[in-house]
Design a protein around this nucleic acid. Structure first.
Length: 534
DNA sequence: AGTCTTGCCCGTCGAATGGA
DNA sequence: TCCATTCGACGGGCAAGACT
């Protein structure tokens, strides 16, 4: 759309605001683009209008379903005019290619911190940002320091990045280029989404050497859909990483319930870096979230994870088989309502923790490694107790290679308070779903996600659900008990390929053959007739 | 008739104020 | 110091009126 033009009323119509609103903007804001008369009508350049609208937030009461608080009129205008409908991904993709050229020898995380920190400053409209863009050298570094002092999370990531980034002369020119790219991201008006996009890109770039667990976007969407958070709910992630689940839940609520946004979001981070990234990510999307760092106090002396609040919805992807001693040395066992575990078996400690932080009408979805479904010992005992208590609602086995950090297959535990026991557990084997996005990466398509989501919804509603061989099975607890509480879905759903087809009589087969021969003869005759006609 | 401006009203947000 | 309340600025909607 190089030089497309629009009138004031066009703008008002596309934005679904009144004409007077646009008129007021024009009257009240000298920065409003100037008009040009075409055939007696005043016209504006779309490019200039979009630029200006990007700086204009839609007030809460005027948000439409699906729009998060903080959405600008620029975004709405673009959507309505189908401008750049390829959206932030296309823009960010292009910028990403440029961006990684300026990566130096330092590790990806440092580079990520620098870029994300700057993008946060740019998008959150920091008062120093314009000067940072316009200045160079030590003055610019001073301004960055000043800006970071105003934003503590940025302070953390920028400090980390600075020491390794600016120790040579090339650092200066690279910084100039990076700031230029960040400014372009800001001007695109889709900074918050780009922040999220870059978080995913950087996590992928860090790969297996990456510092933290990063939940892929497809998995976030799946889990959020499975717990279906409603407006007014409290959402909690006890290990929130960069805030993906909390943001996903906020987006889900906004998309399904309009702008009614009185939900609360709480995240605990295991590192200061995670906390900073999560804080920035959520702030930029205007998600009112509390993010705390709880790494040092993860496990108390009695082995319990810290739990003193309850939430309606808990979503989490905690680190599997946590090796790091994040608890005090005096911890020898991990206690929980459903059993005691040796201190190295943290997976079920997380699951029990999730249960203890759930309200009695709550719902939780947790990502766990495959071992949690079948391992015996103390873990098997806890699993058995949870099943008997009726807190396990469903298990979904996912394909391998879903994560950048590990190739092992994972599964989703859907948990509910025991009051709601229904005597059956839904087991879904989705390990055949998904497609490879690279040699080592697999992702779930939208269809895959909705197939899983719809199955769970139908099963919950008790309406229209049927077991699908090789995919899903609703299983009574008694049957799981007989299997020593092993929850591996594949064991219950059967195989999709019929290994032992029921034997058919020779007569049936001969009849079939005869029928097919008759149809073939009829088809031949039809072809002959057509040929004769020519 | 269609397009835009103006004045007025009202809801929202944040800063200031006041009380425990 | 923390909380609630008040107040003013601001932005958007509405309706009447002006312009072409």
């Amino acid at each position: 759309m190089p030089d497309r033009q629009v009138s004031m009323s066009d703008v008002a119509r596309q934005l679904e605001v009144t004409l007077s609103a646009v008129s007021n903007w024009r009257r009240r804001h000298p920065s409003f683009p100037s008009a040009e008369k075409v055939n007696g009508q005043e016209m504006f350049l779309v490019r200039e209008i979009v630029d200006w609208l990007d700086g204009r937030k839609i007030s809460k009461k005027d948000l439409k379903p699906g729009e998060l608080p903080g959405t600008t009129y620029g975004t709405r205008f673009r959507g309505a005019m189908r401008i750049g409908h390829a959206s932030h991904v296309a823009i960010a993709d292009a910028l990403w290619d440029e961006l990684i050229q300026f990566r130096g020898a330092e590790d990806v995380a440092m580079f990520a911190d620098l870029v994300l920190g700057l993008l946060y400053l740019a998008v959150s409209n920091d008062r120093h940002w314009n000067d940072i863009v316009a200045t160079e050298g030590s003055r610019r570094l001073q301004l960055m320091e000043l800006a970071a002092l105003d934003h503590r999370p940025v302070l953390h990531v920028l400090h980390r990045a600075r020491s390794s980034f600016f120790n040579d002369t090339r650092g200066e020119t690279r910084l100039t280029e990076i700031i230029r790219l960040v400014e372009r991201m800001r001007r695109s008006g889709q900074g918050p989404d780009m922040f999220e996009f870059l978080l995913n890109q950087f996590a992928a770039a860090e790969g297996r050497r990456g510092s933290g667990v990063h939940t892929p976007a497809a998995l976030v969407r799946l889990l959020v859909e499975l717990v279906a958070p409603a407006p007014g709910t409290s959402v909690f992630d006890p290990c929130c990483g960069s805030g993906g689940f909390l943001l996903g839940a906020a987006k889900y609520i906004a998309a399904h319930a309009g702008h009614d946004f009185d939900a609360s979001f709480t995240g605990h981070a295991l590192s200061e870096r995670s906390a900073s990234l999560a804080y920035m990510n959520l702030q930029l999307h205007h998600v009112p979230a509390d993010v705390d760092i709880r790494a040092d106090a993860l496990f108390r002396n009695d082995g319990m994870l810290i739990a003193n609040e309850r939430f309606d919805v808990v979503l989490s992807n905690p680190p599997f088989d946590l090796k790091e001693p994040m608890w005090s040395a005096s911890v020898s066992e991990l206690h929980g309502r459903y059993g005691t575990l040796p201190k190295k078996r943290t997976n079920f400690a997380w699951l029990q923790y999730v249960m203890s932080s759930l309200t009695n009408s709550g719902r939780a979805a947790v990502v766990m490694p495959g071992g949690t479904l079948f391992r015996g010992g103390a873990e098997g005992q806890v699993r058995a107790n949870m099943i008997e208590e009726g807190v396990v609602e469903a298990i979904i086995a996912l394909p391998s290679q879903m994560f950048v950090s590990t190739g092992i297959p994972v599964n989703v535990w859907l948990l509910r308070p025991s009051e709601r026991r229904e005597g059956e557990i839904l087991l879904i084997d989705a390990s055949d779903l998904g497609h490879l996005t690279s040699r080592t990466q697999r992702s779930l398509s939208d269809e895959d996600q909705s197939r899983i989501g719809d199955t769970v919804k139908q099963w919950r509603a008790g309406d229209g659900y049927e077991n699908v061989r090789g995919f899903s099975a609703s299983v009574v607890v008694q049957r799981i008990r007989e299997q020593d509480y092993v929850l591996t879905p594949a064991r219950y759903v059967g195989t999709s390929v019929e290994l032992n087809p029921p034997l058919r009589s020779v007569r049936e087969l001969r009849d079939d053959l005869a029928r097919l021969e008759r149809r073939a003869a009829a088809a031949d005759a039809a072809v002959e007739r057509q040929l004769d006609r020519i």
